[in-house]
Nucleic acid binder design. Structure first.
Lengths: 231, 231
DNA sequence: CGGTTCCTTACCCGATTCGAACACGGCCCG
DNA sequence: CGGGCCGTGTTCGAATCGGGTAAGGAACCG
């Protein structure tokens, strides 16, 4: 089940759907990772302990033992190997992010395999000590955004954003000053296979600005081009 | 079956309905792509391996070999050429996005050929990833121009340019010293399809100079020829 | 079912663009 | 030396374009 030479380290994937598992293996292998596949939770936990992978990719819904449970037991045993969850539904996301499961990241299905690979790399970069740009809290003017807690405050007061709104603001603020076209934002924030009109971006920008109140100016419009966060 | 010189690269289209295939070829060709057409899956796979196209556009339902199967086999063989699927039904979309396949994008029938072309371009842009030379900030005299932030400063003070004005200045400053005729500037900055008179260039140059204030001299007039940025 | 969230559509307003018209100035030629 | 002339600078208003905004409807989830 383990795939050849792990030049960049071994990734443990625990996923019961063969189609998904195969694709994930394919992409991770292509990127130079070694991949070990397990189909059920119990075997997954055992493999994690035995093989000491550099990252675990765990489906949440698993036969035998839930992915969250695998993670919990690893942490209990003092094993802090980075964990990325695969999750089908958004409400599960709340549990991962809200409750502290000790997860490092998550990807919601359906997801692009490319994205998963990117996350694996990001997690490793983070674990290596070099804090990626992505997960540090960022402040622009009165607006502070914390990617790991998914919270936004304006002058200290918390602001409630929806998931899409947050992702949009986070993407812009992660690269302050840089101007993105609507197409770029659609591709990066919404995902590679979303067929939404570009006006959708406008509407969400407006929504974010409304919720930011006086700090609406953090998102600047570049007429004829797109949007950028101040910087 | 292959259409002449692929200035922008060769696109492989595998589609059994001639009407659709012709339309797709028409639009891609018009956009400067070379197009190679195949009608059935087996020939499509062979063509993909032989011709090494920059993008594959695959119908899902194909005689001989399904588009999904072509994609799977390419991936297995280590071929990561970007793939865009043509799909008739929405439930197929779930399978694609739900990642049974290593697809890069998909388009549902009926689709606008324009949209397909746009997606081909988008996929290529994404695959290229590496932003070109243009991305770096340039300084000429007291004038600094940052393409990604789309900002211009004169002696440190920010200057507000409109989109067209910025593009014009950026184009000139990206190639300092080189003289461009008004026609060249119209074609490059405004775009191929613009039928604007050449005096329009003058007007915009004047506008940029006005906004640059003391540094207006960065754009030098070459009487009887055109304009150039200092170098 | 009722409430969110998200995407689309349609309308309105202001910024931007474009080209005509006029002003300016150097250059050629008488 | 002076006068026309060609090419360019500049001004200005109408038309266009792009973005803000509100409202409706679909999808989703509890």
């Amino acid at each position: 089940m383990t795939v050849d030479a792990p030049q960049r380290g071994l990734v443990l994937v625990v996923e019961d759907e063969p189609a998904i598992a195969d694709l994930v293996r394919l992409y991770l292998t292509r990127d130079g990772f070694g991949v070990h596949l397990e189909r059920d939770g119990t075997a997954g936990l055992a493999a994690a302990r035995r093989l000491r992978p550099v990252v675990c990719v765990l489906d949440i819904a698993l036969p035998g033992l839930a992915g969250t449970e695998i993670c919990r037991r690893l942490r209990e045993a003092g094993d802090w190997t980075p964990v990325i969850f695969l999750t089908a539904r958004d409400d599960e996301v709340d549990r991962i992010v809200g409750l502290e499961l000790g997860a490092d990241d998550y990807v919601t299905k359906p997801f692009s395999p490319r994205e998963l690979v990117a996350r694996v790399r990001a997690v490793l970069r983070r674990a290596a000590g070099a804090p990626g740009v992505d997960e540090r809290a960022r402040t622009v003017g009165p607006v502070t955004l914390d990617p790991t807690r998914r919270t936004v405050t304006v002058a200290g007061a918390p602001v409630q954003l929806t998931s899409t709104e947050f992702d949009l603001l986070a993407y812009l603020m992660a690269r302050p000053g840089r101007v993105f076209t609507r197409e770029e934002l659609l591709a990066s924030v919404w995902g590679y296979a979303v067929h939404a009109g570009t006006r959708t971006v406008d509407v969400h920008v407006a929504q974010v600005r409304a919720k930011l109140g006086g700090a609406a100016g953090v998102i600047r419009t570049h007429r004829g081009v797109g949007y950028a966060a101040d910087g």
